[in-house]
Structures are given as C-alpha cells and as structure tokens.
Design a protein around this nucleic acid. Structure first.
Lengths: 129, 129
DNA sequence: CTCGACCTTCACATTAATGGAAACGTTTAG
DNA sequence: CTAAACGTTTCCATTAATGTGAAGGTCGAG
C-alpha cells in the first residue's frame, strides 16, 4: 500500500503520515523506487495514533505505548521488552492514570453544574436575565 | 497578593502566570502602579489550571470550563450562564468524556501487557534474551 | 540612591501540523 | 515513444500553542 492509499483509508493526509514516521511512531517499508510501503495493520495503527493524539497524548508517549498496544491486540508479543522499556511503560501508565483521575473529577463537576442550570432554566423558562 | 507571591505559593513562574492572563484563563486586578494583584482564590485556580493542562486540555478548553468548575466548588454560581456558554460547556463535556473513554481503554491494554510480562519475568528470572 | 520586584515587548524553543518548491517515479493519452 | 498529469520524494519554511529568556524601563522599600 502506498502513502496515498493509506491516507485515503485513514483520512490522514500523506504529509502527516510522513511526519509520523519522522517522529518515530510509524515505520513503513521502502520499495525499490524509494516509495513508502505500508501493510494492512498500518491502517489500524494510524487510527490508533489519531485517537491517542486527540485524547491529548504526545507523540513521545505514543511511541512508548504503541508497540505494547499492538502486541496486546494481536495477543502475540513479538520480542521480549527490555527492562528500560518496561520502566517507560510503567511511567506512561501512571501518567495516563493521573490524567484519567483528573478528567473524571472535572467531568463530574461540569456535569453537576450543567444539570443544575438545565433544571433551573427548565423550571423558569421565561425568566432569563 | 503580587505575582511573585502567587508564583511562590503555586510553584508556577511569574512569566507563566502572565501568559495565563494573556490567553484569558487568569484575571488579576491591577493596582494603581500597574502591578498585577491576585486574591487567595487565584492559588487554587492556578493549581487547577496546571492540573488540567497536564491532563492534556488546551487553554481554550480550560477557558470554557474553569468558570463552571469554580462555581461548582463554591456552590454559588455568580451569574446566569448564557445559552452559548452552556453549549460550549456541553461540547467540552463530550470532548472530555471521549478522552476518558480512550484513555481508559488504552490504560487497560497497557496494564494487561505489563502484568503479563511481569509474570513472565518473575517465572523465568534468569532467562532474559 | 540602590537593589530587587515588577512592567512591557521582542525573541526563542518545542511540539503538532501544514505548505511550497524542485526533483524523480508512474500512469495515461496521443 | 513522447508528453502531460499525477503521486511521491526530500528539504526548507511556516503556523499555532505552550512555555521561557532577556532587554530596557518603572516602582518602591531599605
């Protein structure tokens, strides 16, 4: 699969796919003419990258967690991770868990506030000031 | 409270506090000489800003949700929010909830992967390759 | 007066993302 | 086969967002 095909299947511009390679989170093969060549799994990988970026992770975090996320998905961990990688993974896990806690706490506050006002406005529909 | 005091109490550099004002998420008063003046609530506000930024939110999102988070904390909503603000809040809530889902799903995958490898390494402590 | 804290303003670093130019490969129409 | 059209390559520059640094001036406490 060439970069344009992958772009079309993922909705991610070729330019951005090259950027993801540059920052080390996407690793296409090269064919004889120098063109990037992607396999089918690259589609899921790109979608996963987009999802994680939109969730606020950095490309550096993604670079550390992506291999493990793919291994978990396929159930076949390719190579034994080094201790250093496991440490990095533990740190990323902690970071993600902190984020979840913060987001959950603030989501609750927003929900409460929002529902309180929706109730108020529903009770007094023509009293806006 | 002057900017240096707030910086010391929050661990956030004065330069960054000025930046937060510039992007509209911190609103100090000005005393006659032009100095920024902060009240006690600014301490919590700055800590909350740091927390949300570290959780991956943008200053724009924070600008929309912060007033409501403060109102929720104090239990005394100052002014009636406009419908436009409520809409923005609903969008931010959706965005935060999407982020939580993504992070939770991937946290679980990382945990599973990590524990699987920790078990493996514990079972065969001298077989690293 | 001096010195430290504060002011504004311009510049810079980094990250995620995008745009353009020039060269090369591939495909298609004539 | 040729030539235009299109996709891809690399390289350099740029934008927006978050954050930091430094210059030059003002304020005020000692």
């Amino acid at each position: 699969m060439k970069i344009g095909d992958l772009a079309e299947k993922t909705g991610v511009a070729p330019r951005l796919l090259r950027y993801y390679e540059e920052v080390g989170i996407l690793h296409p093969f090269r064919s004889a003419n120098g063109y990037r060549t992607y396999g089918e799994p690259a589609i899921d990988r790109v979608l996963q990258i987009r999802e994680l970026l939109e969730a606020g992770l950095t490309t550096e975090m993604i670079r550390e967690v992506l291999p493990c996320l793919e291994a978990a998905k396929e159930g076949t961990p390719k190579q034994c991770p080094v201790a250093k990688d496991l440490d990095g993974l533990r740190r990323q896990l902690s970071s993600i868990e902190r984020r979840i806690e913060v987001l959950q706490r603030n989501r609750q506050a927003i929900k409460t506030y929002l529902h309180a006002w929706e109730d108020t406005l529903a009770d007094t529909p023509a009293e806006a000031g």
